[in-house]
Design a protein around this nucleic acid. Structure first.
Lengths: 223, 223
DNA sequence: GGTGAACCTTGATCCTGATCAAACTGGAGC
DNA sequence: GCTCCAGTTTGATCAGGATCAAGGTTCACC
């Protein structure tokens, strides 16, 4: 079992040191919270197995899904270097994460420059990801948002060696809507419409993309 | 002139080292680009004077304002540790920034733990900021968005020692709309309406908040 | 295997903000 | 001081998605 929680390009001693920094695994059952908004921040988490959602909370109590996280994703970055988590994280199915105590990681990053660089890249990637979501929420129509969401999932499943065209959604229509800034009825209608138009086949949470090209075109048009 | 581009809690030698890492100042005229999306990433920038906007670009060419940056803000973080800038940055008025070469900073962060911590905090804060924008774009109505935007500006001016109730907007209605996911006409109408309702006085880009409490209530309601 | 709750679909209607259009304003440049 | 143009305001209309409502489906749990 040579794989790493942080996919760094390291070798030898460095790698061992990183291995040591990675704490034990935690099993989560569907619905379990890994951490909640406002919890004191002490560690990052690498998703080993399963799917989590992170949610942001407005002062008035409104909650919104900020992201979905699959195997290999690192979560908790938003609390890095601060006192408290700004998000909450909940398992959408039985999952497993490993804990990366932050004190240790920060220290390690000082001694292992490639790791430091890697950490920075993770953070920057998180920022870029968020910018993508802002673009989606700020300037796309409902159908573009859903298409974009499905293509994003597709790409991520592909990268993990799963089918990129046939997968099971781990979240409800309401959660999808929350992430996309839409109501659940709108999400449901869009799935139906996409199916009518031959872009995909959907049955509850089972999705089969039948025309990735058409979905791409949907996202890319306008301009 | 003892102030720092990165407001770190350092002293003595550390402080000198950081000072040394901060490159020279650059003057920007209104409309000048500091960097563009896709430019190779080499440095962060601290805003010394003026106002900048950062913009994200979709593949299809759509552009959206990702943030407005005032004196003391650090920009360019999204490119950190990666090859290219994911955003563009443009001066909204004559401005001045100082360049913080990234290679140097990363190296320095290894030797000066408080600086490392500070850098991480900046990154985490940027992520949290983006989450706030996602919340705004995903779940607020138009009037809540504008109120939220104005209160945010107000707070930031206050923190910088300027009036928190009377200021000049440095961006056009269209740019405000782009940031808030609204059209310029909607922004204009909202300003007029807020004025009618006695929340503020507006004349072109001059804004005077006359009822911060009412603006707050507007944002906070819905539960 | 049956039951109930959570989740999903679909329909009808409403409303917010987009779009189209036209006139007004103010400031930069001559 | 005048001109011109980018930016702003305001009006009229439209449409996308929200909301309200009512069944239908699935699956976890007993």
């Amino acid at each position: 079992m040579r794989e790493l929680c942080l996919p760094v390009g390291l070798s030898g001693d460095d790698l061992k040191a990183v291995d040591a920094a990675v704490g034990n695994r935690t099993r989560l059952k569907k619905g379990d919270s890994l951490y909640r908004t406002g919890d004191s921040f002490a560690a990052l988490y690498a998703v080993r197995l399963g799917t989590l959602k992170t949610t942001v909370l407005a002062e008035d109590g409104r909650e919104q899904v900020a992201g979905y996280h699959l195997q290999g994703d690192i979560i908790g970055l938003d609390g890095l270097g601060t006192e408290r988590h700004g998000c909450g994280a909940v398992a959408l199915e039985d999952s497993e994460v490993c804990t990366i105590p932050f004190e240790h990681l920060e220290e390690l990053a000082r001694d292992v420059p490639p790791l430091q660089r890697n950490l920075h890249q993770f953070l920057a990637r998180e920022i870029s990801r968020d910018h993508g979501v802002m673009l989606l929420l700020g300037s796309m129509r409902a159908e573009e948002r859903l298409a974009s969401f499905l293509l994003n999932l597709s790409e991520r499943y592909r990268a993990r060696g799963y089918s990129s065209t046939e997968f099971v959604l781990r979240m409800t229509r309401e959660e999808i809507g929350s992430y996309l800034g839409l109501k659940l009825e709108t999400v449901s209608r869009l799935f139906s419409r996409f199916q009518e138009e031959g872009l995909l086949k959907v049955s509850g949470r089972n999705v089969k993309l039948t025309s990735v090209a058409a979905l791409r075109q949907l996202v890319g048009q306008r301009g």
